[in-house]
Structures are given as structure tokens and as C-alpha cells.
Simulated assay, not measured.
Amino acid sequence: MNNNSNSLAKLLPMMLCFFAMGFVDLVGIASNYVKADLNLTDSQANIFPSLVFFWFLIFSVPTGMLMNRIGRKKTVLLSLAVTFASLLLPVFGDGYALMLISFSLLGIGNALMQTSLNPLLSNVVSGERLASSLTFGQFVKAIASFLAPYIAMWGATQAIPSLGMGWRVLFPIYMVIAVVAILWLGTTSIHEEKEEGRPSTFGECLALLGKPFILLCFLGIMCHVGIDVGTNTTAPKILMERLGMSLADAGFATSLYFIFRTAGCFLGAFILQKLSARTFFGISVLCMLVAMVGLFVFHEMTMIYVCIALIGFGNSNIFPIIFSQALLAMPQKKNEVSGLMIMGLFGGTIFPLAMGVASDAIGQSGAVAVMTVGVLYLFFYMMKIKR
């Protein structure tokens, strides 16, 4: 009983850290509000989500090296401190340069957190419980993701006028949660085992991209994150363009996406016990492919919402399936493979930039076309998954 209570006491602060990990997804709805406030084009506004995920390319592998020096818990605490700083800046305004710095720090903090929090969790739970705990962590993370548009919408329409913050009230609310996470995790004792063998180098990690299946997995992660960030950012714009909705009303589309993505994360743990990874992956990709076709065709609010929900559910379990496939392909190189897969989150930089250019040229259908390319790649990847 004492062991269970002790494990729970260590698990709860880490689940709050997973919630803080979800703060990164506020960039989608926030970029739409910044676009409206500053009269930006789609290309200019999409720099914000692109900038957030750019830092995964730079920081994922070095973070693994940092963990070898200072430990996993201290690395997670550092990530929370950087996240706190990113959330503090918008309290002072929403100028273009200020928001660029804020979103950069948000991306750096999240890169540190994504790389270090999962390994830290393995110090508290192990074996079969680790997989379920990681899945539950993703579920908790998704809660923060779909709450962000609601909080921003509340701030834009209902918040106390004297605060003078509007939608930016989202930042201090999440900032307070980050502070609680720092204090709670900081006072929690967690024993970390020392890594065996020589730490991986940056070159050794990148060299694994020479393995064909690892490269396919890396590109798959890039497409998954590109579709995720792309839908998060573009869904409200589609409703505004086709139905003339206000941003406050259209912001529900982002929440809808994350509601179904959260449900997908929760259900995926049970579905994968009944279906093979390849079968479930195929169903997930089919959901997204149908949705992309629908977003080209439909102009009715209900059908657009159905398409967004299908993307949310379909994209919810793509990451864990690809990640596990990569680890199974090279079990002797788990650290290097893990670093590469986290680096693949850089797809969140490439897709929004391409989508911004395409939507400026031909409207939001151009952005949908870019995401469709990612879905088609995932269909190709499915054929390479072992039965």
C-alpha cells in the first residue's frame, strides 16, 4: 500500500507536467488572434507555429546530452522555467517581436520537456504500466490543448475589461499552472538510475537516418505534427473564410479538433489491444483522408465540423504507433532513435510555412492541399508497417 501511495505521489506532479506540455498547442489559436490584432497575412501569422516547432530540430538531441550531465528531473524543471518565461512575456503586450520571442521560448521549453519528461516517467513506473502511463500522459496533455481556445475565447468576450488583456488572459492562467508544476515536481523526490555506456553523440544519432525504415518513421513524425499544427491553425480560418464567422466563434473548431484527439488518445490504448498497429494505423489514416476530401468539398458548418473531428481522431494515435515501430526496428539504439523521433516534430515548422504560402495564393483550400500531402505519405508509410 505504501509503495502504491509513494508511486502515486510521484506520478501526480509528472501528470501536471504533461498538462504543461500541452501549452505548446495554444500557438494555433493564439496565432489567429495575433493575426487579427496586427493585421497580418497568413504567411506572416504562420511564422508563429513554425517558429515554435523549429526549436525541436535544434534542441532535441542536445537535450539528451544535457540529461546525462544534470539528470532528467532537473532538465524537466529547466523546461518548465523556460515555459514560464514564454508565458510571462505576452502579459506585457502582443507586439510582433514580443510574440516571436514568446513563441520561441515556448518551443524551446517544449523541446526540452518532450525529450526529458517521458524518460523521467520511466523512473517511477516500469514494465507494462509504463506504456499505459505514457498514454495517459498524452491524454492529460491533450486536455490542455483543447482548453486553450476556450480560455482565449472567454478572455476575448467575457474577461474583466479592466485587465486589458482580452484573449491574452490565456497566458497568465497557464503561467500559474507552470509555477505549480515547478514547485510540485521540485519538492518530489525521484531516484534516477545512471545511464550505462557512452552517451550518444549528435553525429551517431543523425547517422541512423541512413537506415531506410528509420528515415520513413522520421518523415512520418514530421507529417503527423504538420497535420496536427496545420489543423490547429487552419480550422478556424476555413470557417471564417467560408461562413463569415468571427474568430471568437470559429475558435471552437480548434477545441473540437483537440476534443476528438483527446478521445482518440484515451480510446487508442484499448483499441490497440484488439487490433494490430497496422490495421488501426490504416483506419486512422483513412479517417484523415476522408476528412481532407471533405474540407475541399463542403461549405456547410456541420460537415466542416465532422471533417475536423475525423482529423482529430485519426491523428491522435499516429505518433505513438510510429514511435513504437521505430524503437522496435532498432531496440539496441533506443536513445538515438528517441532523439530522432522527437527531432521529427520539426514538421510543425515546415507545414505551416507551406500552408501559409498556399493559402495566401488560393485560399484555405491551398492549406488543406498541403496537409493532404502529409496524409498521403502516412498512407504510404502504413504499407511499410509490419503486420
Results as ranks from 00 to 15, higher is better:
Lys35Pro: 05
Ser50Trp: 14
Val34Cys: 05
Thr135Pro: 10
Ser284Tyr: 03
Ile318Val: 06
Gly339Asp: 01
Leu16Gln: 09
Asp228His: 11
Val229His: 08
Leu26Trp: 13
Val82Ala: 06
Leu328Ser: 12
Phe270Ile: 09
Met222Tyr: 01
Pro49Thr: 09
Ala178Gln: 01
Pro236Met: 12
Phe351Cys: 07
Ile214Met: 06
Phe281Pro: 05
Phe171Glu: 07
Pro13Ile: 03
Ile108Trp: 08
Thr75His: 04
Tyr33Glu: 09
Thr262Lys: 08
Asn46Cys: 08
Gly22Tyr: 04
Ala30Asn: 12
Gln273Lys: 13
Met343Phe: 04
Met371Trp: 04
Met383Phe: 10
Leu80Gln: 09
Val290Glu: 05
Leu100Pro: 06
Phe296His: 04
Asn6Cys: 14
Ala152Ser: 05
Phe59Trp: 10
Pro236Leu: 11
Asp249Gln: 10
Pro161Val: 00
Phe280Val: 06
Ser162Asp: 11
Phe281Trp: 04
Gly166His: 02
Leu328Lys: 15
Thr349Ile: 14
Leu239Pro: 06
Glu195Arg: 10
Tyr305Ile: 07
Leu112Tyr: 14
Met240Phe: 01
Gly356Arg: 11
Val368Glu: 10
Leu295Lys: 01
Pro199Met: 02
Lys386His: 12
Gly363Lys: 12
Thr234Pro: 10
Thr349Gln: 10
Leu38Thr: 04
Leu275Glu: 05
Ser116Arg: 00
Glu204Cys: 03
Met301Ser: 15
Met175Trp: 02
